[in-house]
Design a protein around this nucleic acid. Structure first.
Lengths: 226, 226
DNA sequence: CGAGTTTTTGAAGGACATCAACGTCTGTGG
DNA sequence: CCACAGACGTTGATGTCCTTCAAAAACTCG
């Protein structure tokens, strides 16, 4: 909706190394990109918009998803630091991406994959790997949406979140209930009920407006996850 | 389950062209692969199996998906001629793939993406594009599973199937009801009821054991699809 | 402190699942 | 060619998990 308050991107000076053969090159696994900042709720790009760049998260949480005409929404994935999103094969974006909280990304100018690989094979390899990882996660998420019960979805979500964003058993929810519900294919009411139920059963502990969750019984959650 | 009756792969002789510069090379967009055949129901590879090859469908239909311990199954995607599947970033397959009917594929030996790109950039580009297409479809499928009603799922399925496999309004279902149900996140009973309901409403016509469907009112289905 | 937003909790309803039985198709052997 | 068995598909009756509708509670931020 609002793409307005996105801070104008500032160019990152490309790090250049001088090779023995006299050719200039960039360090492996990196490529010139533009650092950009988005505030909570900002749209990074919208479904249908021309595809001009793809992104890597530096800090914060990004949600990507789709909207049906009547307002129903599905969040396909959350992306955390290190994750790549927004790569397309057509020339329009096929989904929307927004900042869940304050977000910093590196934007890479759209270019054919061949070009990327020619200029920086290691970066190309990294991108391909990112795509396969994203596809892996999508597969897991389809099982969750198609075949898991509400509790199983919530247990899966909490454990995944802990694995991806936390080194401890404490999870900071950067997203609110609406996002969780739209990610899990549930309603906010159900999400809320599930969390209080899990807390009542001693599997988790809720603190500070339910934005921090301690996974008190990971093994128990693992059982519920299916 | 049974990987037994897979016909032993027969090597395809690599087509070699002599370039002006005297180097031998393969034609663009192709790479050496092994032709393999699978019968209806055969497993092509299983979740957890070592990853040794990825595949392109030549003929027939392939289903890829996952199984939960208690037998619940989710089919993530159907793959038709031209589609690539089974590419992984880890060294084990993350999902299972099986032949829906009699299937012919080209198996490509696992290799790093860098190698593929070095040896045949055009093929690498094609692979990247396939991955992005698969991810696109996964996104659509997540919306379907997470937010669409049963009728909407069925309408979406029929229209997609027609677009991908048929040039007319007649769709041949290569898969049986169980597969459709596990793809749409429903039960076979619901799938059956939906089809008869759509037929009663004049949107489709069922023939020959319900394996051939005529999309009598595509516009109507489009409305239902959401 | 107070207005608006987000989250929680409760009561009632509905869409799809489950359980059960019947119908239909396919292929095999008499 | 027909009979039969087993697999696959359809139809019906009932149940349940999650949604929907409603309102209160808790939190945020000026």
């Amino acid at each position: 909706m609002q793409i307005l308050n996105a801070v104008r991107g500032s160019r990152i000076p490309p790090v250049v190394a001088l090779h023995a053969n006299g050719l200039t090159t960039r360090p492996a696994n990196e490529m010139q990109g533009t650092r950009r900042f988005f505030q909570q709720g900002d749209e990074i790009f919208a479904e249908g918009e021309p595809y001009t760049a793809f992104y890597k998260v530096v800090s914060g949480t990004v949600r990507v998803g789709k909207l049906l005409i009547d307002g129903r929404r599905q969040i396909d994935a959350f992306h955390f630091p290190g994750d790549v999103f927004g790569l397309e094969s057509s020339d329009r974006h096929r989904f929307t991406s927004e900042a869940v909280d304050d977000v910093e990304v590196i934007a890479y100018r759209r270019s054919t994959f061949a070009t990327i690989v020619r200029e920086n094979p290691a970066f190309g390899e990294q991108l391909m790997s990112s795509m396969v990882t994203n596809l892996d996660r999508a597969h897991d998420h389809m099982v969750l949406l198609g075949r898991k019960t509400a509790v199983e979805r919530m247990a899966s979500f909490l454990l995944d979140l802990a694995r991806r964003t936390s080194r401890s058993d404490r999870v900071e929810l950067s997203m609110q209930r609406t996002d969780i519900a739209d990610y899990l294919g549930l309603t906010i009411e159900t999400v809320s009920r599930l969390l209080t139920q899990l807390a009542r059963d001693g599997l988790i502990r809720l603190t500070k407006a339910g934005r921090t969750i301690v996974l008190a019984d990971k093994a128990g959650l693992q059982t519920l996850r299916s």
